[in-house]
Simulated assay, not measured.
Amino acid sequence: MGVATGKESARAAKPRRQVGPYTLITALDDAHTRIPVPERRYIARSSDGQRTVLLSLPHSGRDPQRFLAEAEASRYLLGSCSAPATAVAGPGEPAWYASPYLPVLPLPTALAVHGGPLPERTVRALGAALAETLAVLHGQGLTFAGVSPAAVLLAADRPRLSCYGAVRAAAPDGTARSGLTGLEAGSLPPEQASGGRPRPLGDVYALGATLAYAATRYTTPERDELPTALREIIARCLSRDPGARPQLAEVIASLCGDAGREGGSGSLLGPGWLPGRVIAALAHQSAAVLTAEISVEAPSVSPSSPVSHPD
């Protein structure tokens, strides 16, 4: 797995790599899932040992200024599932941004830990919570432009949406984005794949692809592969015609059902919303990160060079 493991304790005495003021502990993402990740993500700690963060770097070859512009813009995101940057690289520094650490698993890693698609209740809770947050962002006049399986982080209390602006950071409007590093093809709305400007209904498409992945392990499954109770709403989200996609309020109502008319996603995010194996993996990660030690002096690493699990 890409999350911190018990091997970290054995590696504690070795110097680790550093980005800006942070020393890397471990990679967040599991390469074995083979799901594209819009940015390179790590769990890291400040050199004084006082702050643990989720640290993101751009892929090699990406424009660092576009990456930093989206990171800076994320500071203004609202919504309970938003994960805005709280620290961004300064002038003259290699590009990076950070947000406070909490135990999380990327959605692809959660499926690997669980051993297959997630239960219907989990998918419903996930979708409703993300849809509510997207509705808040759209109310701010923003388009997330980066919803995908890897962008979704599962925490014990609720999901978080990371990788804000990944589509905009990958290439400017008018430039075809199909096949670009880090963008999951099935989650990329057709109108954005061809270089179109990201718009709110594109977020609805990407949300549908992400829920399809959570329910089937595929972002573009056949209609009859989707769970019967979720089939219609997810299939509508995945319409190639933006005008045929549902509004987020309809998505929320469909996923929450009668139980959520008053409480929204809160009615689904109570104890048991995540499978036991995922909860156990979150606890394991938390313990491993807590006990990981770092050396105060660490060699620096350029974000333009690949970084694997720090040795």
Rank of each mutant, 00 (worst) to 15 (best):
G116C: 02
A288F: 03
G127L: 00
F67V: 11
A156N: 06
S239N: 11
P119E: 05
E132M: 03
T122A: 08
P117F: 10
L183P: 08
Q192F: 12
E297V: 14
A229I: 00
G260S: 07
V147Y: 00
I25S: 04
L130Q: 07
P106Y: 10
F144M: 00
R66P: 10
S305I: 13
R177F: 06
L126N: 01
L211I: 03
V296M: 10
P242F: 03
P306E: 04
L255G: 00
L183Q: 06
H32R: 15
F144L: 01
A69E: 15
A206L: 12
Q247L: 13
A89Q: 06
A87P: 02
P21Y: 01
E225S: 13
G208L: 07
A128E: 01
L230Q: 00
I35V: 15
A98R: 04
S302Y: 07
D173Y: 07
P227E: 01
V307G: 12
P108N: 06
L269N: 05
G257Q: 00
S99A: 15
G270Q: 08
A85D: 06
S162N: 12
P100H: 08
S148R: 00
L248S: 09
L142P: 04
A112R: 15
L24Y: 05
R45A: 12
V289C: 03
A128M: 02
Y97S: 13
P159T: 02
T26Y: 08
A253R: 03
E8C: 02
L230R: 00
R34A: 12
R160S: 05
A73L: 09
S254P: 01
P200N: 09
H138T: 08
D30F: 04
V3Y: 13
S99Y: 06
V136A: 12
P21T: 06
G263I: 02
R217F: 12
G276L: 11
H309M: 14
A10Y: 11
L226W: 05
A89K: 07
R40D: 08
Y42V: 09
A169K: 06
S46D: 10
A155W: 01
Q65I: 11
S254H: 07
T216S: 04
A171M: 04
Q65S: 14
K14H: 14
R66E: 11
T216A: 03
G202V: 09
A170L: 08
G272P: 05
R66I: 02
P227Q: 01
A31T: 12
G270L: 07
T181P: 11
S308C: 12
P189D: 02
R121P: 03
S60Y: 12
A287P: 11
G6D: 11
A69T: 14
R245L: 03
F67E: 03
E132D: 03
Y218G: 13
L57R: 05
L153A: 03
S300T: 13
